[in-house]
């Protein structure tokens, strides 16, 4: 079978990263703790995957303090938005090809 994998994004092969990006697509902004509880993952796992997305320039990080506790919020970048949409298109194509 020859799948067209040019659009399939390796970064989103990781489930947590794909989920983070899904949440940030549906919301303009999301904070670390809310992400952690909705994805039901550990601090370390979440932090390392957020770091990867940040390095790819798919998300932006905003750090503030609320009552002296760090409050870190994340937003998608235009680049991240494009990458996610293309990845979804690739998934869609894969499904269509398999139906043939």
């Amino acid at each position: 079978m020859n799948f067209d994998l040019t659009q399939y994004n390796k970064i989103f092969e990781n489930k947590v990263r794909l989920q983070i990006m899904s949440v940030l697509m549906a919301n303009d902004e999301y904070d670390f703790n809310s992400l952690k509880s909705i994805l039901d993952v550990t601090d370390g796992n979440l932090a390392s995957n957020l770091k990867t997305l940040e390095k790819e320039n798919y998300i932006e990080v905003f750090k503030t303090f609320v009552d002296r506790k760090p409050n870190t919020r994340y937003r998608r970048t235009i680049e991240g938005e494009k990458a996610f949409e293309e990845h979804l298109k690739a998934l869609e194509k894969l499904i269509k090809q398999q139906y043939k």
């Binding site: 794909l18 989920q19 899904s22 949440v23 697509m25 549906a26 919301n27 999301y30 809310s34 909705i38 994805l39 979804l88 998934l91 869609e92 894969l94 499904i95 398999q98 139906y99």
Partner: peptide
């Protein structure tokens, strides 16, 4: 095929649940 459909469903579900 089933995995892919599941993956897309989980994305949808998460977008809904998170917002």
């Amino acid at each position: 095929q089933e995995d892919l459909v599941k993956e897309i469903a989980s994305i949808r579900n998460l977008m809904e649940k998170s917002s």
